[in-house]
Design a protein around this nucleic acid. Sequence first.
DNA 1: CAGAATCCATTCGGATACTG
DNA 2: CAGTATCCGAATGGATTCTG
Lengths: 118, 118
Amino acid sequence: MTEATDDRSEPSDSPCDVDCYCQLNGLMDLLSRRYAMQLICVVGAIGPARYGEIEDTFESVSSSTLSSRLDDLVDAGYLSREQYAEIPPRVEYDLTDAGEELCRRLQPLLEWAADRDV
Amino acid sequence: MTEATDDRSEPSDSPCDVDCYCQLNGLMDLLSRRYAMQLICVVGAIGPARYGEIEDTFESVSSSTLSSRLDDLVDAGYLSREQYAEIPPRVEYDLTDAGEELCRRLQPLLEWAADRDV
DNA sequence: CAGAATCCATTCGGATACTG
DNA sequence: CAGTATCCGAATGGATTCTG
């Protein structure tokens, strides 16, 4: 018999093997970009949020950076973007279902992170 | 009375206000670097792990990148590094207490992420 | 108001070669 | 084995200006 002191050679039962953490997948790349994780939780916290609201929440973020990060999250399906035909224009971002799930999984991390090093 | 349809104007009771997500703190910067989150969970999964073990777990990572990421996490206090005076040299990385807490908060996220986009 | 476009300094991470 | 040192292209994010 093959020596199997641990289960690393038999990934059959584990629903999520260690290796799964290592395949750099698109989501991790996305979340690693600046403000991405914070944005999910902020939108989750203040519900449908206008662009300006979100911008104000962050102390300093350039509009170009914020825009591209919002686009990323919309394109990836974690944020929805509703544009109203008004003047002045109004845009509202909100979490999609996937975004809510993501937010749920991010919140424990971000809360702890915020406590740690303010 | 002041209108308070939501609690955004009264952040008194909330232990972690929305704003806390926005202060870009050092931990989020650290976690946003490549492999950082995965490393925490990998070390959490395979216990005390040698450098080579960790390297093998990732399909492709240059030693320079892996080294610097491990250094980051050690310096930040999430990984411990034990070096044994043997030949050939042996080094073992493990989670610190803070690292374990971090791992606990990362795991739900990474497991979900791995399921999502393989 | 909610961005888009452009430009640019900095940072990041991979490749490669070398070492105690 | 477990890195370090150096080099370099690519990606990132900020500043600024402009627009429907």
